[in-house]
Design a protein around this nucleic acid. Sequence first.
RNA 1: GCGCCUGUAGCUCAGCGGAUAGAGCGGCUGCCUUCUAAGCAGUUGGUCGCAGGUUCGAUCCCUGCCAGGCGCGCCA
Length: 576
Amino acid sequence: MAYPQAALAAQVSAALTTEFGPDYADADPLIRPSSFADLQSNVALSLAKRLGQQPREVAARIAARIADAPMCERAEVSGPGFINVTLSGEWISGEVTAQLADDRLGVPAAANPQRVVVDYSAPNVAKEMHVGHLRTTVVGDAFVRALEYLGHQVIRANHIGDWGTNFGMLLEHLLDVGEEAARADLAAGDINAFYQAAKVKFDADPAFADRSRRRVVALQAGEPETLRLWQMLVSDSRLYYNAIYTKLRVTLTDADLAPESFYNPMLESVCADLEAAGVARMDEGALCAFPPGFTGRDGRPLPLILRKSDGGYGYGTTDMAAIRYRVTELGADRITYVVGSEQAQHLAMVFTVARQAGWLPDRVRAEHAAIGMVTGTDRKRFRSRSGASVKLIDLINEAVSRAEEVIKDRYDEPELRAQIAEAVGIGALKYADLSVARESSYVLDFDRMLALNGNTGPYLQYATARIRSIFGRAELAPSDAAGPIDPAEPAERALALRLLGFGAAITEAVATAEPHKLAGFLFEVASDFTAFYEQCPVLKAGDPAVRQSRLAIAALTLRVLLTGLGLLGIPVPDRM
RNA sequence: GCGCCUGUAGCUCAGCGGAUAGAGCGGCUGCCUUCUAAGCAGUUGGUCGCAGGUUCGAUCCCUGCCAGGCGCGCCA
């Protein structure tokens, strides 16, 4: 089984070789979807000059060759030299029938499975998870699921912020409030209030600030009582975001925690080794690396600070420790940082320094899967401080209650209703983030994120509910539907052709760490299915063979949607 | 000042160097005795920020400009 585009590409490449010689075997066949046929190849236009022939002449020779292939119904030259290809109905039928019979839905496992470390989510201890975390969490989680589906070995790394100078003031505030009261606040989910209260005191009260700084020293020195209090903050926060992960159906668990503090024991050697390797040197009292190609405001080389002049370590040091650990200890072939785009320069510096130090060999791919900013209506970074505070948990609850509002008259049983509302609300929320390119920033808009109509999660869920409903009426399990599928009508032909692209969609999404490519594909599947649903009666089809074929393609569509939505981490209710 | 990102329909966004640039929302018009109307069909709507260049062909690649955002030495 092969994706139509790839299969046709092979045909065109073969034709190029036989017609024009082996030099042309590597030329990109330039297969694209066509609005005049099923697919088109633009290769003749690109090769005409090199061949010294008229584009239409080149196209004609290729078209004549590929027209004989079993997959082609017709190959025609059009316009200046496009080759429009209409696929054979028999070929589509055979491919899609095979796809239904395949456990993996025609998606081959990766030929060279990799070990991939994916750094995502990364909330901060004692800080509220906000809307910005939604994107890195949801996009990262979809990415790891797709990687695993292709057979890669994934190591999830939740690089939570559990260390740093902030903890001085947080711990002092904890002591001021009293342990019990503080824990009650945190358990109630009012983490922001806790953080902000500490921050206000820190800024206003010099004595408090002084205590805080001493507390940082005690923490870094490993003073037992300080560590106990710190541990308390960390574990309470962990409970908090685990609850959110559960609600969001995110696969992260405590086993995936790779907190900043984890790297503490390595920081000294990171500095020593980089200095010994000549990659880092002292400058203005701090140990710095100056990766080539980075300049600062004043035109001087921009440092990656490894050890501050006061002897402390910053996040740059931690990131260097982490990248070395991931390569040498975890054996990563690929490291993907699903992190906000504002970190681009910092990460680029980390990668460069790691390459210089030999910690990141060429065989290891390190990439920043940048997440665009969530902004307020002023187009500036959304900040909880500047006015209306939007906690992630509030957004989640709003999503579910809006969904509940829509279905409240449809289902009497409260339990079923709650179940559906949760799947629909969470699905809408996650899909909103997964369907846009991860790097584009967008305005925080509840109505858009929680919409239940149009190109949304619920639209895709709805398509599955309709398919299940057909099988319910037929008193047949979807898994009992079997081939052959004969997509005779245009709507079912279009659906069949679309379904064949499933594997290509996943492969592309994984190659570029862009789940929105998969989301877009699934939307097309759902659209094509809906058109089929309108135009091609399934249960009322007169001919038993047609009915069987349509049941089979409906079953295949259901599996593709369920599998695809599963990879995106979007829950699917049985009914809607 | 330097670097990175963004600029596509009224709004939110897709768009792999190829033909007439696509969705969703919104607006307008239709469609529920027929497998779920969270739906469907149709329609409205674009100097692809501006100006050059490369190319048979540019929304896409290159250069310059304009606008916005982000980052730029001891916070993470």
